[in-house]
Amino acid sequence: MTTAFIFPGQGSQAVGMGRALADAHPAAARVFAEVDDALGQPLSRLMFDGPEAELTLTSNAQPALMAVSLAALRVLEAEAGLDLRSGASYLAGHSLGEYSALAAAGTFSVAEAARLLRLRGDAMQAAVPVGQGAMAALIGVEPEAAAAIAADAAAGEVCDVANDNGGGQVVLSGSAAAVDRAVAIAKARGVKRAVLLAVSAPFHCALMRPAADAMAEALDAAEVADSALPVVANVLARPVDTAGEIVGCLVGQVCGTVRWRESIAWMAGAGVTRFVEVGSGKVLSGLVKRIAPAAATLNVGTPDDVARFIEAAASGA
Rank of each mutant, 00 (worst) to 15 (best):
Ala71Ile: 06
Ala198Asn: 15
Lys289Leu: 03
Phe32Ala: 01
Gly40Thr: 07
Met47Thr: 02
Ala201Tyr: 09
Gly81Pro: 14
Glu98Cys: 06
His204Ala: 04
Met66Phe: 09
Thr3Cys: 04
Ser263Asp: 04
Glu142Met: 04
Ile149Asn: 11
Asp83Met: 01
Gly18Ala: 03
Tyr99Glu: 07
Phe48Gly: 02
Ala265Thr: 06
Leu55Lys: 05
Glu217Gly: 03
Leu21Trp: 11
Gly281Trp: 02
Ala182Arg: 09
Val306Ile: 14
Ala177Thr: 11
Met215Glu: 09
Pro202Gln: 02
Leu117Ala: 10
Leu73Phe: 08
Pro303Ala: 00
Met66Trp: 10
Ser315Phe: 00
Ala233Thr: 11
Val170Thr: 05
Ile310Pro: 01
Ala151Met: 04
Pro8Ser: 03
Val195Phe: 01
Arg261Lys: 14
Gly248Trp: 11
Asp152Ala: 15
Leu117Asn: 11
Ser59Asp: 09
Arg308Trp: 01
Ser173Gln: 07
Gly140Ala: 12
Ala4Ile: 05
Val183Trp: 03
Gly121Leu: 08
Thr242Tyr: 05
Ala20Asn: 01
Val240Ala: 13
Pro293Ser: 02
Gly286Ala: 00
Ala162Tyr: 12
Met135Lys: 07
Gly106Ile: 07
Gly252Asp: 12
Ser89Ile: 00
His204Val: 08
Ile149Arg: 13
Glu311His: 01
Asp160Thr: 12
Asp36Pro: 09
Arg120Gly: 08
Val199Trp: 13
Pro129Asp: 11
Glu311Leu: 01
Ser285Arg: 03
Gly256Phe: 13
Met208Leu: 12
Ala177Glu: 13
Val141Met: 06
Pro42Asn: 04
Gly131His: 10
Leu117Pro: 07
Val68Gln: 11
Pro293Arg: 01
Ile149Glu: 11
Ala243Leu: 09
Gly190Asn: 10
Leu82Arg: 01
Val251Tyr: 08
Met66Val: 14
Ala27Tyr: 03
Thr2Gln: 14
Ala146Gln: 12
Val161Arg: 12
Ser69Glu: 04
Val195Asp: 15
Ala64Met: 07
Thr273Met: 01
Ala101Trp: 12
Ala151Val: 06
Ala137Cys: 09
Arg259Gly: 12
Phe309Met: 00
Gly167Tyr: 12
Ala126Asn: 10
Ala265Ser: 13
Ala61Gln: 10
Gly16Glu: 08
Gly133Leu: 08
Cys255Lys: 15
Leu138Ala: 06
Lys289Glu: 12
Asn299Gly: 04
Ala72Leu: 08
Ser263Gln: 05
Val235Leu: 10
Ala126Lys: 14
Asp23Ala: 13
Val141Arg: 10
Ser227Lys: 10
Gln169Lys: 09
Asp213Gln: 13
Gly140Ile: 11
Arg308Val: 06
Gly50Asn: 05
Ala162Thr: 06
Glu34Ala: 14
Gly301Gln: 05
Ala101Glu: 06
Arg238His: 09
Ala146Trp: 11
Arg181Ile: 03
Met1Ala: 12
Gln169Phe: 02
